[in-house]
Simulated scan of single mutants.
Amino acid sequence: MPLLALLLIACQVICGLHVVRSGQERYWIYLIIALPGLGCLIYALGIMLPDMLRSRRGRRAVNQLHDRFDPERHLRVLRNDLDISDTRETRVLLADELLRLNQAEEAASHYQAALRGIHAHAPEIMLGLARAHFAHGDASACRLTLEQLREHNPDFRSADGHLLYAQTLTQLGDVLKAEEEYRALLGYFAGPEAPLHYALLLKQLGRNREARELLEQIDSYARRAPKHYRNLHQACLAQARSELQELSKALDQPA
C-alpha cells in the first residue's frame, strides 16, 4: 500500500477518534470518510486546532512559541500597564516578568517600590525582592530581606523562601547554619531542589559519599514518580543525574 494511503488512513483514524472522544456531531465522521484528505484537513483546522489552543497545554505551547520569537512581548504590555496605572499590582507583575527574563536589578527596584503603605511588609512582595537580590548576586541583601520578612510576618510560611534562605547562607559561607536549614527542608520540601542543593553543599564540604546518597535518593524517586513530576522538575533532575554520575565516577575510582 502506498505511503500516502497509509498516512491518509492514519489521519482518518486520529480525526475519527477525536470526533468520538470530544463528543462532536457524527456527520464529521461521514465527512472524514467521504473526503479522506480534505475532510481531515477541514476537521483539523475547524475543530481540533481551536480545541487544542483552548486547552492549558495548547495555551502554554502558543505562549512558548511567542516567547521564542519575541521574549519581551509581555514585558512591553506590563510596562504600558504601569505607565497607565502605577499600582502595587502593576509593579509586582512587571517585577515578576523582569525576574523571569533575568533582569533582576530592575525587578528589585519595582518590588521595592511596591512595598509601600499598608503593603510595606507584604510577605509575597518581600520574597520577590529577596529572589531578585539573590538573582542579581547580592546575597547579603537577600538575607537581610528574608530576615525582615520573617520579623514582620512571623506566621508566613514558604518552602521556596526557606530554600532561598539556605542557598543564601551557603553563598555567604555560613555553611553550618545552611546545613541546619537544609536538614529542616528535607523533612517537608516537596520537590528535588532542596536535596539537590544540600548535596551540592555536602560536595563542597568534601562529604562526597553523603552527597551521592542524597543524589541517589533523588534519582530513585524520580524513576518511580509520575511523568508530570519528571516534566515539572526536568532541569533539576538532569542536574542531579549529572552530579551523581560525576560523584560516582570519582568515588568508584581505585585509590
Rank of each mutant, 00 (worst) to 15 (best):
A199Q: 07
A235G: 10
N208F: 01
E210K: 13
K203E: 11
R209K: 13
L196E: 02
R209V: 12
Q239G: 01
R223K: 10
L196D: 00
A222P: 00
E216G: 05
R230E: 02
A211R: 13
E193K: 13
A211D: 06
R207G: 00
A225H: 08
L196H: 05
L232N: 01
R207Q: 11
R223Y: 01
S220N: 06
C236T: 15
A211M: 14
D219F: 11
G191E: 06
A240L: 04
A222I: 11
E193F: 04
G206W: 06
R230M: 06
Q239D: 10
N208H: 05
A238P: 00
A240S: 06
A235Y: 14
L214M: 12
K203Q: 14
S220H: 09
D219Y: 12
G191S: 12
A235W: 13
E210A: 11
H197F: 13
L201M: 15
A211V: 14
A222K: 05
S242Y: 11
A199T: 08
L214P: 01
A225F: 07
K203W: 09
L232F: 05
L201H: 14
I218P: 01
A238M: 12
E193C: 03
A199V: 09
R209P: 00
A194K: 10
L202I: 13
A222M: 05
A222S: 09
S220Y: 08
R223T: 05
H197W: 12
A194T: 08
A240R: 04
P192M: 13
L237T: 12
H197T: 02
A235V: 15
P226E: 07
Q239S: 10
H233Y: 15
P192S: 12
H228S: 03
K227E: 08
K203C: 04
Q239K: 15
Q239A: 13
Q204M: 10
A222T: 08
G191L: 08
L237Q: 09
A225N: 07
Q204L: 14
R241N: 07
A238V: 12
L237E: 07
E210P: 00
A211P: 04
E210T: 05
R241A: 08
L205G: 02
Y198Q: 11
E193M: 09
R207F: 02
A194P: 00
S220R: 13
E210W: 06
R230T: 09
I218C: 01
P192H: 13
E210I: 04
A225I: 08
L201I: 09
I218R: 03
S242K: 15
Y198R: 12
L215C: 03
Q234W: 07
S220E: 08
E216P: 00
R224W: 05
R241F: 02
G191P: 01
P226I: 14
D219Q: 14
L237A: 10
A238D: 10
L201N: 12
D219S: 15
H228P: 00
D219H: 14
R223E: 01
E193P: 01
E213M: 02
R230G: 00
R224H: 09
K227F: 07
R241C: 03
S242I: 08
E213W: 03
G191R: 10
E216R: 15
Y229N: 02
A238S: 13
L215H: 04
L202T: 11
R224E: 09
H233T: 06
R224S: 11
E216D: 10
L237W: 10
Y198D: 03
A238F: 08
A211S: 15
L205I: 01
H228R: 08
R209D: 06
L205M: 09
